Amino acid sequence: MVSRSSDYFKERRWHVASTLIVGSLALYATTFTSGVFMPSMVLLCIASFFIFACALFWSIPPTYLSSEAAATGIAVISSIGILGGFVSPTLIGWMKTATGSMNGGLLASTVLVCVGGVTLLLAVPEEALRVGEDPPTRLVD
């Protein structure tokens, strides 16, 4: 649904940034509902918006990188992303040690993801992502 909306409006930045921010805030909000099943499940379902952000994110680099730079740019992005596999657990573990709770680590991760969403909005030019023809007259086939 989010991918279809992004294609319809030919806009990627706001779709990716909003799913990152909403998903991370919902994941952190689960710390306030511990022990209560339904609110936790609803928040976890909202937190799954991260999946939409991942799918949409990879459509951004080819739209503003030249064909010669696209392969290198995507490789650099992937390399930085792989570092997240090390940094994230380390950060959460360090915050748990420092605060005695997993909530601090989850808050730090939430802040980093929100900063990433805002950085995406500020760093990627809006006009670079508005490509294609006019939107179709209807969203559903």
Rank of each mutant, 00 (worst) to 15 (best):
G105H: 10
W58V: 07
I46Q: 09
A70W: 00
F86T: 10
P62H: 00
V113A: 12
A70D: 05
G81N: 11
S109L: 14
R12T: 01
L25G: 09
A29L: 14
L43R: 05
C54T: 11
A123P: 02
T90A: 13
A53P: 01
L122R: 11
F86M: 11
G35F: 11
L120R: 03
G81D: 07
G81A: 12
L106R: 02
G100N: 07
T19F: 03
D141A: 14
L121I: 11
Y28P: 03
K10I: 06
S24H: 06
T119L: 15
L43I: 01
S24R: 02
I80F: 14
V76L: 15
L139V: 13
L20V: 07
T19W: 07
F86E: 03
G85C: 06
F9W: 12
E127C: 00
S5F: 15
V87E: 00
V124P: 02
W58R: 07
K10M: 06
T97W: 10
A71I: 09
F50A: 06
S48H: 03
A123V: 11
G105M: 07
Y8F: 15
V118W: 01
G84I: 05
G105D: 07
I46G: 08
V118S: 04
A70R: 15
A123E: 00
N103T: 14
S59L: 13
A128T: 04
P62A: 01
L122S: 07
L83D: 01
F37M: 02
S88Y: 03
F49V: 00
A123K: 06
I51G: 10
T110D: 02
L107C: 05
L120Q: 01
S48M: 15
I21D: 10
A71C: 02
T119C: 15
Y28Q: 01
V124E: 02
I82H: 08
M1G: 13
L122Y: 05
I77K: 02
P39H: 05
L122W: 10
T63V: 10
V76T: 13
G100R: 05
L122N: 00
S40G: 07
V113P: 10
V42G: 09
L43F: 06
L25R: 04
A128S: 13
E133G: 13
T119V: 14
A70Y: 08
L91P: 04
N103K: 11
V113F: 04
V111N: 05
A98L: 14
A128Y: 00
A69T: 12
L65V: 04
L129A: 06
C114D: 04
I80C: 14
T19E: 05
A70K: 12
W58G: 06
C114A: 15
Y28R: 00
E127N: 12
V22L: 14
A71S: 15
P135C: 08
R13G: 00
I21N: 10
C45Y: 07
T119R: 11
S101Q: 14
T137C: 06
F37G: 04
A70V: 15
G105V: 04
I80D: 05
W58S: 06
S67M: 13
S78R: 05
